[in-house]
Amino acid sequence: MSRVGYIDPNVIMETRNLKVYFVKGGFLAKKQVTKAVDDVDVKIKKGEVLALVGESGSGKTTLGRTMIGLQRITSGQVIYNRDGSPIIIDAKSKVPKHIRRELQMIYQDPYSSIDPYMKVYDALSMPLKYAGFSKKEMQSKIEDSLTMVGLPLDILPNYVFQLSGGQRQRLNIARAISLDPKFLVADEVVTMLDASLKGEIVELFKDINRKTGISMLFITHELPIAKLVAERMLVMYRGKIVEAGSINAVLKDPLHPYTKALIQAYPKISPETKDVIKRIDVKEAEAAQIESKGCPFYHRCPYASERCLHEMPKLKKVASDHEVACYLY
């Protein structure tokens, strides 16, 4: 444990210099390294909902999966502060089995993240059974969690495929919270849902956070959803955290050129702009990721300088609740 150093007691989940690289090819094919997570330091406070925003391929899902021990770490550490006795996950160690259920995840696609040929009761009871709950405890936990997510108890004998997408997502949430997790990764949980359902599920997550105090990493590419659910947000671009801060600060006053472009480009209800060409300064992404030691946004950035190409700027505090990794600041 001596390697850990100081751990903030208010932080439940922390990453230090976390790197997750995917290596493709090697022996005969050309070796290709994808830096899904590249030197990331994140702190998630106890009871907090932290939004992680980025486009697909930014590494946000990998970061979430790594935090709960689903992804092998290349280097660095994930520290789960379990009631004052930190659990360290690094390149060599895994999450101990008995701790596994304290770290839960909800997936994007409610249709594929739960086996449609299972009965609702079995889907709920199986994790509880293997977590060592008695029959009686199981029953009350199932009932509590279903009530919490707003599903009626009479769906228990149904098959999962008889449920709608929204109901399945609720069932997934019920499964996860029935295990009394301390930390939850919600990975694009409303992306696949229709507009009419999004609101309810977002409310549900806020509700669970309020009632149970479960800390959450809420991964989404939808800025408005992030705004509704979290107090703080991180903006990730190609494996790096480029901006972090309170939601209001970042959305109102984005600093990083990428965040700026993202907010500029994000569709807003504005029928009066139908004939206006939106101004977007950044270049479109290239297919291949260009490897460099510098800022991953260099090739798209309108303000890029020579320095950006060679050296990645560190996250720098520009206000009490706002950090940015850019040489412009």
Partner: peptide
């Protein structure tokens, strides 16, 4: 399939995953 990984997250042993899915 995602539900296989979900089983892992939920602490279901792998032999059980094999038989259920």
């Amino acid at each position: 399939e995602v539900y296989v990984e979900a089983d892992k997250v939920l602490g279901i042993p792998s032999y059980r995953t094999f038989f259920t899915h």
